[in-house]
Amino acid sequence: MTSPLEDVRRRDLPPDLDHLLHDLRGPLNSAVMHLEVLKRAGVTDPLAKQSLETLGQELARLAGMLPAAFAVAALGRNETTVVALRSIVEQELRRPEAAGVSVIEGDWPHVRGDAELLSIAVFHLVRNALEATESAGSGRQKPTVSVEMGDRQVMLVVRDWGPGMRNPRRAIRLGASQKPGRTGIGLVTVERIARLHGGTLTLAAPASGGVEARLTLPAA
């Protein structure tokens, strides 16, 4: 699934963040160059060679995480409007990759927020749920999306049936993803969007398996 956040990433960062990212890349690039010098020096100790390889991998990971972190930091909420949350969900589920995800029927109240940012949040929650369920093997129940009402709040609940996790809270941080080439930006982005709306993102691991993500937003 191609993320709508890619469009956000392509936009220019605000000047202050762009300058800061440039300043951070300087010492990072210098560290990479000095690491290559050490590798060419002919280190023979096996432990030292392994440490150099690990250092190179971590520097490469950091280089990938920095732009992702700044893309999240640059997210800003536009003027809020009354948004039909179910319409946002159904729009994201029209993507071919989201086939099989079911929407639980019920009273879907409207929320107040930025429709573009909410679309990004729903995308990431659905993608994570699909990938988690698929990783658990065939025969698993497909993810579900539902909504609950609280005290002037609306909770969007995305439930997967994957292998679950021991510490769900630790999943909401950059670098948490164990998937090759991934930075873990998805849930960090969703949490950022939740906070921009005065809401929250929480993860829970039900006893029956899988993970339940709850995105809390202000009711319209």
Rank of each mutant, 00 (worst) to 15 (best):
L117E: 15
R127G: 05
G137H: 06
E148P: 08
R140A: 10
F123S: 09
N167C: 03
L156S: 03
E134H: 05
M149E: 14
K142C: 06
G139L: 12
E148V: 13
P96T: 05
V126A: 01
R159E: 03
S138A: 00
E148C: 10
V157P: 03
D107C: 01
V126I: 10
V147G: 04
V145T: 08
V147A: 06
S146Y: 06
N167K: 07
R152D: 11
P163E: 04
V122P: 01
E116R: 05
S146W: 04
W161I: 12
G106A: 01
L130N: 09
R152L: 06
V157D: 07
R140Q: 11
L117T: 15
G150Q: 13
T144D: 02
A129I: 06
D114Q: 09
L130P: 03
E134Q: 07
V111L: 00
V126L: 02
T144Q: 04
I120L: 07
M155V: 05
E116H: 08
A98F: 08
L156E: 02
P96G: 04
E97W: 12
G100R: 11
D107M: 02
L130Q: 13
L117R: 12
V157N: 04
T133L: 06
L130A: 11
A99M: 04
V147C: 09
W161L: 14
S146H: 08
N128L: 10
K142T: 11
V145D: 01
Q153H: 10
L130I: 15
G162H: 07
L118M: 15
M165F: 14
R159S: 04
L118N: 14
P96D: 09
A98W: 04
P109L: 00
P96L: 06
G137V: 11
N128K: 12
L156C: 06
D107R: 02
A129V: 08
H124F: 15
P143A: 07
V126T: 05
R127C: 07
V157R: 04
S146I: 06
E148H: 13
R140E: 07
R112G: 11
A132K: 07
I120N: 02
A99P: 02
I104K: 08
G150N: 14
V111T: 00
G106E: 03
V126C: 01
M165H: 14
F123G: 05
A136S: 10
E148W: 11
S135L: 05
G113Q: 15
M165N: 13
E105V: 00
D151H: 10
T133V: 09
N128R: 12
L125Q: 02
T133Q: 04
S146C: 09
E134S: 05
R166V: 13
